[in-house]
Design a protein around this nucleic acid. Sequence first.
DNA 1: CGATATTGTTAGCAAGAGTAATGAGTCATG
DNA 2: CATGACTCATTACTCTTGCTAACAATATCG
Lengths: 151, 151
Amino acid sequence: MLMKHPNVSQQTRTDAGLAAVLRVAVGRLARRLRAQRPDASLSLGQGAVLFALARHGQLTPGALADHEKVQPPSMTRIIAALEERGLVRRMKHPDDRRQQLVELTEEGVQLVRADQRRREAWLTQRLRELTPEEKATLRKAAEILERLSQS
Amino acid sequence: MLMKHPNVSQQTRTDAGLAAVLRVAVGRLARRLRAQRPDASLSLGQGAVLFALARHGQLTPGALADHEKVQPPSMTRIIAALEERGLVRRMKHPDDRRQQLVELTEEGVQLVRADQRRREAWLTQRLRELTPEEKATLRKAAEILERLSQS
DNA sequence: CGATATTGTTAGCAAGAGTAATGAGTCATG
DNA sequence: CATGACTCATTACTCTTGCTAACAATATCG
């Protein structure tokens, strides 16, 4: 082999090194989370949309696409799937008839609540194995990651 | 709306709340990273494999699949793509002829190095905008995330 | 030796995201 | 006030990437 095999902490000294490690870690965890989803449950994207609606109330499809960093057609599909399952409802935008407003149905609200206890179960279990300090780190990191993905 | 719209810090008080936020943040950032990849470059999975080989030297396809949390057939495809581009080379395992060893070619080594400067450019740039404290948090978080995805 | 396990591959399929083109509605400007 | 440009969402299509199931080759153990 031509390269050394430095450990993670050595590799994260530089921004580029941190970027590389973070990129790989995020990709791998995303795969893992996707695979972990219980069968009849929501896709990662669907869950994220429900979550966003629970947090922000009514949103337009465009705003949701923007928020979740997907293209509008992808969001159309996600919303259609959620609507078919009766979890969200579309309403015409009062001021601009090109737009729509998407909001949770009562069933959607219930599901989001249930998900707090059920769908994130795998990750929740993993988190329980961490020390309080590690969880605190993740709390701070979650906010930073959110900012990164928006910028 | 039937739910309150608590902010992130409120939602991460509990393990389940942290899990929900983390799940969404990781999914979104993974999407963003995937989209950010320059056209002629490697896929996220291919990059991760090259990265793993750079770090660990020779590995079997099975070990790589395990490491990256994909099923063996997926790894077969990733390796085939990398081999086709001349970035990795397969060798027979000296002791067990069922197994193979995969290692970087010189070209693969060059590409991994170049990626440190080029492929993670977007994320590196974002990281530069963070405070040293935030970067320290991400360094610690990266290690935790890596552990989570392995467990 | 023969049965079982392990390793990797092939084949086929499904989910998820992207681009390009389209339709409907709005807005600005001559 | 009409028309041309723009915006928002959708449809149609394609590509990537992951999976499971089945299989071939080799190893291991009774």
